[in-house]
Design a protein around this nucleic acid. Structure first.
Lengths: 218, 218
DNA sequence: AGTTATTTTCTACACTTGTTTAATTTTGGT
DNA sequence: ACCAAAATTAAACAAGTGTAGAAAATAACT
């Protein structure tokens, strides 16, 4: 049940999420955040201690539920496969679909959250540490599933392929409008349904190509 | 030939490049930049007018030469192909290799520059506009070559596949150390030679998978 | 050498930064 | 209704922000 100060707490996090997503950690002031939230400036520090803590809390807030949903999707795929290796496309879909789905149907907060992730992920300052902290256990589970789906593939290939997957997925969330410009309006950054149809087969084929490439040169 | 104030101009740009790459536009102060450059604070505004102009000039400085080299690499591939469609892997390699090569062998300035690009690319504030401004003409040339390499592929597939390529490539430049953590040291973010071997076949297979997927369902 | 023109330094402006403190108001439990 | 706990407000802190202008130093050209 909701405690006393939870509504203001959440208002501050909501405003912070939106603004951090737009201009990053340093591009936003505490005063902007509290103004957008409609509360006094001092409340940000009252509830979160520091700007940095607020930033962390915004990132953490949605991470747990997200990872649970993705883990469940993976377990469904594995259960369906039984003792056979799981289908690679389906594993990748379990990894990406919960994200794409929330971004498309979860309301603008989710868009902000993912745009924030997109920035954090590519930042040398936060990228390595924070992504590792919040997503590593889940990612390791997925990589293990991918290894089962692609037996006899060298580990280096798996990790680099995952890295490419991560980059492609995360740029999608940034929704910078670049593909809109490039395609003269034919494709839209916000059309995540198109991504959902294309990303799993695209990435799965890439994974398999690395596996093939390696078995050739033996 | 070098004009009078060019050395300080470059010192400021070098320092700005390094710092912007580490903490982004807002995360760095003009005073930090000039301190690292070893010059007076006022010189940043004297030479560049404003912090924002300095930022732009840093991004622009290496973009031109870079695009020339990539265009030349593409033209070589096309010349080699003659009247036949060019080889897809080779087109992708012409797109990525000049970047990976400079990052690996061009000294730390290039690493900074690409890390900066990695941040800008995923930022909603700069991403769409700046990348379009500096790289669009070249990217359109490459997309045209890819279309020739993959005849009868729907344009939407081409653009989305390019988008995935772009995300994978750009995350590589961020060198956040994430893959180092994830692989427990087996892979290293800085090992761009590994990327150079794997990215073109990975991406080419993805492109082809989208083409196949589409011709199936007719 | 003398006179521009360019570059560099120093100082200061007007304003914003994150955070803290103390006073005040509101709330929940008894 | 009373009291302690929690939440909110207003004010201020010291430090730092981008930028500009006048003075000084340096270089270039005739």
């Amino acid at each position: 049940m909701a405690k006393r100060g939870d509504v203001t707490r959440n208002k501050i996090q909501d405003a912070a999420e939106e603004l951090f997503a737009a201009r990053g950690f340093y591009g936003v002031t505490v005063r902007e955040i509290t103004r957008l939230a409609g509360v006094d400036t001092a409340l940000a520090n009252y509830y979160f201690g520091s700007k940095k803590n607020l930033f962390d809390s915004v990132l953490l807030r949605r991470a747990e539920g997200l990872n649970e949903a993705r883990l469940k999707a993976l377990e469904d795929v594995e259960r369906e496969a039984g003792d056979n290796p799981p289908d690679l496309e389906k594993v990748i879909d379990a990894f990406t679909h919960p994200l794409l789905d929330r971004s498309e149907r979860g309301g603008p907060e989710w868009k902000s959250y993912f745009a924030l992730i997109a920035q954090v992920n590519n930042s040398p300052e936060w990228g390595g540490r924070m992504m590792t902290e919040y997503f590593d256990p889940l990612v390791r589970r997925f990589i293990a599933a991918i290894k089962r789906a692609l037996p006899n593939t060298p580990d280096e290939d798996i990790y680099w392929a995952y890295h490419f997957l991560s980059g492609a997925l995360v740029l999608t969330f940034a929704e910078t409008g670049r593909i809109d410009n490039l395609s003269d309006g034919l494709c839209r950054s916000s059309d995540l349904e198109s991504v959902h149809r294309r990303l799993p087969p695209f990435i799965a084929a890439g994974f398999r190509a690395l596996k093939e490439r390696d078995s050739e040169k033996s």
